[in-house]
Simulated assay, not measured.
Amino acid sequence: MIGIKVKYLRGKKGYSLNELAELAGVSKSYLSYIERGIQKNPSLQILERLADTLDTTVEDLLDKEKDLSNLDEEWILLIKEAIENGITKDDFAYYLSFMKFKNSQKEELE
């Protein structure tokens, strides 16, 4: 789950993989391994560099309370089904934006 958090925070900061690797002093390939879950246990030194660069803490990167493992089984099955049917992250973001818009329109009518 560390990789997912690093990738999310990197995107939130607007860094490319190369930019974050350079700023944190980590090789691009090693960072890629972390984000893809190939390297699941990076050293504390690497985590500290990434956390500092991403304006967070090592504790936050390691905090299991904030990961997706607490999703109930129904959500997990829905996500798996969506992926199996070819829904991309961009598609999901579009649907989410649409639902926010739809809900805001509904609230205006009430």
Score class of each variant (00 low, 15 high):
Leu44Glu: 15
Leu44Met: 14
Gln45Trp: 08
Leu47Asp: 01
Glu48Val: 09
Glu48Tyr: 11
Arg49His: 15
Arg49Asp: 15
Leu50Met: 05
Thr53Asp: 11
Leu54Tyr: 09
Leu54Gly: 10
Leu54Ser: 06
Leu54Trp: 11
Leu54Cys: 11
Asp55Val: 02
Thr56Leu: 05
Thr56Asn: 09
Thr56Ser: 09
Thr57Phe: 06
Val58Pro: 01
Val58Phe: 07
Val58Gly: 04
Asp60Asn: 09
Leu61His: 07
Leu61Ala: 08
Leu62Val: 04
Leu62Glu: 10
Asp63His: 06
Asp63Gln: 07
Asp63Pro: 05
Asp63Ser: 12
Lys64Met: 05
Lys64Asn: 07
Asp67Gln: 08
Leu68Val: 06
Ser69Ala: 08
Ser69Gly: 05
Leu71Phe: 04
Leu71His: 01
Asp72Gly: 00
Asp72Ser: 00
Glu73Tyr: 00
Glu73Ser: 12
Glu74Phe: 03
Trp75Pro: 00
Trp75Gly: 01
Trp75Ile: 12
Trp75Thr: 12
Trp75Cys: 07
Ile76Thr: 08
Leu77Phe: 03
Ile79Arg: 07
Ile79Phe: 13
Ile79Ser: 10
Glu81Tyr: 10
Glu81His: 12
Ile83Ser: 11
Ile83Asp: 11
Ile83Ala: 12
Ile83Trp: 07
Glu84His: 10
Glu84Thr: 04
Asn85Leu: 03
Asn85Met: 03
Gly86Arg: 08
Ile87Phe: 14
Thr88Tyr: 02
Thr88Asn: 03
Thr88Ser: 15
Thr88Val: 02
